[in-house]
Design a protein around this nucleic acid. Structure first.
Lengths: 327, 327
DNA sequence: ACCATGATTGCACAGGCTTTCAAAACCGCG
DNA sequence: CGCGGTTTTGAAAGCCTGTGCAATCATGGT
């Protein structure tokens, strides 16, 4: 049913090898013959079967992209840039969506069975053993957004602590005294680093958080936690949030309570997602260098795919403070 | 380098066929032998090569997903639900991102070369010829979010006209007299239908649009166009937007100008993306039945993949008016 | 103990492609 | 026209798996 190289060969009156060569850049074949074959192929609607091609040991050009819930604006923003980056390098993203809490391993295993050339992992937890299995299977991985504990894979990650120390400075500069924190799930890497970073930086100013609460990185949860904070007995004059989505929820909460931002309560986030700049929010936040992260991750990955060995490297990218109006 | 069935066979002391059968459900093989082989395979980290498997004529389990710029919140919301739906049917989404204005054909062609079993096309323009070529190549397609002009492929689409007529009724009910429109690119299907639907429905009430402007479905463009409208000589008392992202921008514009929503100006959108419900917006909008759309599209597609023939069908899903506070 | 029956097993091939290798065609030049 | 050297070319070998087919094995009935 599907038209194969044999069909084209028969129709063009050449051997199957010639057809293969006509589609291989730099292969030894007469230019006019190549043109003829390509014309016939076009006529028949032939395209080399990439599955069969990869069977001979070549690369598939497939990159598994493990990503969390796309309803999270940061996640989809990241995927947008990542998929463009993958395509611009002539590769193709095989999407592996995993729900939070879901095990990443079986999904990744299945993707491996598609002989992906590599994987970018931006969600779920991966341990050293899993990383090594992927590499052993010829599919190096790069972990994004956190650093792999036991080593075993390259990782690219924003310098969360540096980001939070800039936030801390801003909090102090604007004269905040009672600073609360709304974080994400306790066990996530970014949450831990950001909270630690903020605590440490504040300690440098002789200050500490007056209260910490936990959301789940969604706008709704930010709203809920901020409402609780702002209606509590000891209202904070600033709320630092673990990401922008929650900060947006916190701003909504302040508005609902008739509080002015930033006068009555300063609010800040992390990531600088597109929505952070939207007018009603004007969120002061830390810009997560997503483009640079994607670029670095893909560089690392392609180099591994090309066969580079050596100890896994960790790249920390510096974030930038983005001062708008909410703090 | 990659471990193959031969390796497992040698290590387990059986033939390669046995290994194959151990991984084929319902194949004739002794239970304990299967268990042994699977244990060995697990030990070696073996997984059947899906590329090679698909070579024998089987399906690849890959579904090409052609999607537009993921920075558009509707698009990423849709992809979220679609990718979950694809995974839940045991298939895998191969992402084919296309920028607006970019030709879809070469990208889709390349995806076809991966022997995808089918394609869901939610962006770019596809004509009858392209649709037929895909089908002829054994990869039926389903077009989402618009109806294919010349037929040639199944399509699933929200009933834009019905949605806009509900909006029109709401506009009239709330006593709006001067209604403006901010649409998207003139040539997009949804834009045409929504504008036509609104115009027609208003005509039924003896009314017409006082002004129409064009954005590009982004929040920024909605803001820009709404600013122009609201500072113009004849300020409208309602702005209907072609999608939610632009409506959010319009609300931001109203706020910046100190206008109250909905008292001074009513604003509505289309889609009911998650952000539409966020507190500062509380956007009155038309809920695009995304889950139902995904479900219907995947049903159609899997049936075609299973070999069902017959004239392409078009499914129109009814939207629902979601009244919040902006209109 | 022997045969019919059915479950297992291994061999070999198919599937679409790339690539090595040796044969064939071509080139310029004496 | 002959010859060394450089493309071009086609045949065949592989890549990895699933499966039809024939051979083998175990089973149970007599």
């Amino acid at each position: 049913m599907r038209v194969t190289a044999d069909d084209v060969a028969a129709r063009a009156g050449v051997s199957r090898s010639a057809v293969s060569r006509a589609f291989t850049e730099g292969a030894s074949i007469q230019p006019d013959k190549r043109a003829h074959i390509r014309a016939v192929a076009d006529d028949l609607g032939y395209r080399p079967n990439l599955m069969a091609r990869s069977l001979t040991g070549g690369a598939t050009g497939l990159i598994a992209v493990v990503v969390g819930s796309l309803s999270n604006p940061y996640e989809s923003w990241f995927l947008d840039i990542l998929s463009q980056g993958i395509r611009s390098r002539g590769l193709w993203p095989l999407l592996v969506p995993v729900s939070p809490g879901q095990e990443i391993e079986p999904a990744l295993d299945h993707a491996l069975a598609y002989q992906v050339d590599g994987a970018v992992i931006a969600a779920g937890s991966v341990n050293r053993k899993l990383a090594e299995r992927c590499t052993a299977n010829g599919a190096p991985i790069v972990v994004v957004g956190r650093v792999l504990d036991g080593g075993g894979a390259d990782s690219v990650c924003c310098d969360n602590r540096a980001g939070m120390s800039m936030i801390a400075e801003r909090l102090v500069t604007t004269g905040r005294r009672k600073i609360a924190w709304i974080g994400g799930r306790a066990d996530t890497f970014s949450n831990v680093e950001r909270l630690e970073g903020l605590t440490a930086a504040l300690a440098g100013y002789g200050m500490s958080l007056c209260e910490t609460r936990r959301g789940d990185y969604t706008t709704d949860s930010g709203m809920v936690q901020a409402l609780a904070l702002l209606t509590g007995p000891d209202r904070p004059d600033a709320i630092a949030c673990g990401n922008d989505a929650m900060a947006i929820g916190a701003i909504a909460a302040a508005h609902r309570l008739g509080l002015r931002v930033p006068e009555d309560v300063g609010i800040c986030g992390f990531d600088d997602i597109p929505a952070a700049a939207w007018e009603p929010f004007c969120l002061t936040t830390v810009a997560n260098p997503v483009s640079e992260t994607v670029h670095a991750a893909l560089d690392l990955l392609t180099r591994r795919i090309a066969g580079e060995t050596g100890a896994p490297s960790t790249i920390r990218l510096p974030p930038a403070l983005r001062i708008r109006q909410s703090l």
